[in-house]
Design a protein around this nucleic acid. Structure first.
Lengths: 191, 191
DNA sequence: CAGGATGTCTAGCGTTGCTAGAGTGCCGTC
DNA sequence: GACGGCACTCTAGCAACGCTAGACATCCTG
């Protein structure tokens, strides 16, 4: 492979990422309804069709943003978990980190978890998402046979709290109180 | 007011509801992305502009469907709660009823809780939604000072379980197990 | 230096939510 | 009972959307 081709591919990869970050920034500042292919193309200073040489369509761009987000979420949760060694506090820290992540990047969080994408099971298909959830699982002892189930329920609760607060359906204050209650009740498990 | 005018208004109210139910049926059979103003107009056998004489726009139609859903959800939960007199079992029954509702009418549930509407705080503005949530609150003893908070967290968890299962992010089987765990852990509260 | 492949752009298609203005028919008044 | 006016509905069209075809330019290869 020639040197030129390598450079081309490198530039292409850069532009690929540029599109993703541009879409994300546009969504974070003006909301996803403002992310149109025209505005996005203008933002990356190319014409519309180049978007389609990188992604199969707009949905694929949103999905790419979401996958980026999964990786960041996993890192964010891992950092929180390792900061506290006590398992009980670790769960608390991870849960708080999850809610912080959702609240500080609402648009990114939407792309990851509420917008209609076909990112399915939190498993092999998207290892970053699997890794993020595993951070919750890891807060329980390895010999806990039901820790997978516990993590699913805690994740669900966190997700519910995040989206219902974001849409104003539950009052945004008292999030800390809700978090305390959730962890207190779900942390000490019978088994 | 003349008799004719009354009849007109009655017919108009009927058509109003016809639009709402048509939108809902279309969404439930083909998904919300298939609900366009043209298809909806064709379905109610009128031209597009009549929709705008009833609703300010498509969003308002979705919101009307959602509000209808809130009322149904409230009735559904109330029925479940009153079937069991034991408070502990009542909470279990209400939670199961909530998940059933979400799973059996996914499109309606989406309009109510995931699509971007400006239905805000679960309070005065939309009494039907408030009534639905109060069914969860009512599962706790009136002298429980924190029952409002408990209900919010349980609602959040139920919502999370519902949407993550619907989008295939957590395996759809074992919903019963998750429900059991949730109720067992959150039902007996310290206070 | 020509030929071909690669890559980008202009232009446009079909569909979307929504609206203006024409047309129609029904009502209440004299 | 004819008529003027009003309420109502429809046809037609706008701007913006996601997406694509085909022309044009640019660069590497033989």
């Amino acid at each position: 492979m020639s040197v030129v081709k390598e450079r081309r591919e490198r530039e292409r990869a850069q532009r690929h990422q540029l599109i993703i970050t541009a879409a994300r920034e546009l969504a974070e500042t003006e909301g996803w309804e403002a992310v149109t292919t025209r505005r996005l193309a203008e933002r990356v200073e190319y014409s519309q069709p180049v978007l389609y040489s990188h992604f199969s369509g707009k949905d694929a761009i949103v999905r790419a943003v979401a996958i980026d987000g999964f990786g960041e979420l996993a890192a964010h949760l891992r950092r929180a978990r390792l900061a506290d060694s006590e398992p009980r506090q670790a769960l608390h820290a991870v849960c708080r980190a999850y809610l912080d992540f959702a609240i500080e990047r609402p648009a990114l969080y939407q792309a990851m978890f509420v917008m209609p994408t076909d990112v399915k099971i939190a498993d092999a298909e998207t290892p970053q998402l699997r890794a993020a959830i595993d951070e919750i699982v890891s807060c329980f002892r390895p010999d806990n046979a039901r820790r997978e189930l516990f993590a699913e329920v805690i994740w669900s609760a966190l997700h519910g709290i995040a989206v219902l607060a974001d849409s104003g359906r539950i009052p945004p204050h008292r999030q800390e109180e809700r978090l305390d209650f959730l962890v207190t009740q779900l942390a000490d498990t019978p088994s």
